[in-house]
């Protein structure tokens, strides 16, 4: 059972928020005993996903949570937008899809960096991506 220790919501409204959100993630990940490789991984994934929210939906929000399963700590980040959604999700996740802003590589790449990756999207409604990165045993 995963328990949430802390939760913070950060708006994504302008380009500089990419920096703001990933900085917060880096600090949280460092606090929660993730090693330097895991910190770099989750910070990079965050950077990609926040940029997607800003570039493709014009904005949205990020929810950052410190979590524990009783034996380990982890970081969970959820990125929510009400943008156009993704038409061909499968292709995007394979990394074959590419727009001017390399959404394909951003999504498929960040998926390979985290321990858990969930995406819900509906064309015209928006997209919600949830990632988790856990400290090693």
């Amino acid at each position: 059972m995963v328990e949430v220790i802390s939760r913070v919501e950060v708006p994504i409204a302008c380009e500089d928020d990419v920096v703001v959100v990933r900085r917060r993630v880096r600090v949280l990940a460092g606090q929660r005993q993730l090693d330097s490789f895991a910190v770099a991984a989750v910070t990079t994934a965050t950077s990609e996903l926040v940029r997607n929210v800003f570039v493709h939906a014009g904005g949205g929000k990020a929810i950052l949570e410190e979590v524990t399963d009783g034996t380990r700590y982890g970081l969970r980040a959820t990125f929510i937008d009400e943008g156009p959604g993704i038409d061909d999700l499968e292709r995007v996740l394979r990394g074959g899809y590419s727009t001017a802003h390399t959404m394909g590589l951003g999504l498929s790449g960040s998926r390979r960096l985290v321990d858990r990756f969930e995406i819900e999207t509906e064309p015209g409604k928006g997209t919600c991506v949830k990632i988790e990165k856990w400290a090693p045993f």
Binding site: S36, F37, V39, A40, A41, T44, G95, L105, S108, G109, S110, R112, L113
Partner: peptide, 13 residues
């Protein structure tokens, strides 16, 4: 840095 190299390669970059 090692962390950066590992992350980029894992993303396929």
């Amino acid at each position: 840095r090692p962390e950066v190299a590992a992350t980029l390669v894992r993303m396929g970059y």
